[in-house]
């Protein structure tokens, strides 16, 4: 298969304008453009639909309120009253990933969540934030998080390293989950799209499959954003209640 037709070609980054700052290449790329669109869609939607501030909501206002209540409920279910402080962050994270995934579903549009560096950065923000939160709430007692209560002491030399590794791998699992889902979905779509062309008349079968797969991908786009948000909530909860 020629590099031109590679299903991975859609993930290539093309600079739109070359910018350099302090010796670093910070070009505005198609990835940055997708982020810009994502942020614009979120901010405009959430601002314009609630502009009238009507007590009886319009349909669009209802969508904004549903999203608000969805995350508020998620946060209060997992973290409780402590979680209110982190609502703007979790909500932004959820909306950023969700709309980022959805923007990626538009044909020929770039999916920035399919880039490990982006998802890893988001996961690292969560990881570092939650770790700082844990130390702020519990001081050095935070390390007792790695000691599982009720386990015989001679098991600790084995279990503590496992707990530490599992804690440290949180940002990796969080970021790889999102990145891999997006990568696999878009690659699959692209592979079947190339079948449509190569199979000429019988291309209608892969086309039908793409239609079904697009529905599934939209579901996954939502699901991954939800998973990202709920895991963030759970990590915040862990920072409050060690066990």
């Amino acid at each position: 298969m020629a590099a031109k037709d590679s299903p991975l070609k859609q993930f290539e980054i093309d600079p739109i304008s070359n910018i350099e700052l302090g010796g670093y290449n910070i070009s505005f790329t198609n990835s940055s453009f997708a982020m810009l669109i994502t942020v614009l869609v979120i901010t405009l939607f959430l601002t314009l639909t609630v502009n009238t501030r009507s007590i009886v909501p319009t349909r669009m206002q209802l969508i904004s309120e549903l999203m608000y209540n969805f995350i508020a409920q998620l946060l209060s279910d997992t973290v409780g009253d402590n979680g209110k402080k982190y609502f703007p962050f979790v909500f932004s994270l959820f909306m950023f990933v969700l709309i980022g995934n959805m923007v990626g579903m538009i044909p020929y549009q770039f999916t920035f969540t399919s880039h490990i560096i982006v998802t890893f950065a988001l996961a690292t923000i969560v990881f570092i934030g939650v770790t700082i939160l844990g130390f702020m709430n519990h001081g050095l007692k935070f390390f007792s998080f790695f000691i599982i209560p009720g386990v015989p002491f001679y098991m600790h030399p084995l279990l503590i390293p496992i707990e530490v590794i599992s804690y440290l791998s949180r940002p990796i699992s969080l970021s790889v989950r999102l990145f891999a889902n997006m990568l696999a979905g878009h690659t699959l779509l692209k592979v079947f799209a190339s079948f449509v062309v190569s199979m000429s008349f019988f291309g209608i079968f892969p086309l039908a499959f793409i239609v079904a797969l697009t529905g599934l991908e939209i579901l996954i786009a939502f699901l991954q954003a939800y998973v990202f948000a709920i895991l963030t909530c759970l990590y915040i909860n862990d920072a409050y209640h060690l066990h």
Partner: peptide
């Protein structure tokens, strides 16, 4: 493009937040 992605992610996500 790692630096570029991180930079614009930081800019846009901070703005959004």
């Amino acid at each position: 493009f790692f630096v570029s992605q991180l930079f614009w992610l930081f800019v846009f996500f901070s703005f959004l937040l």
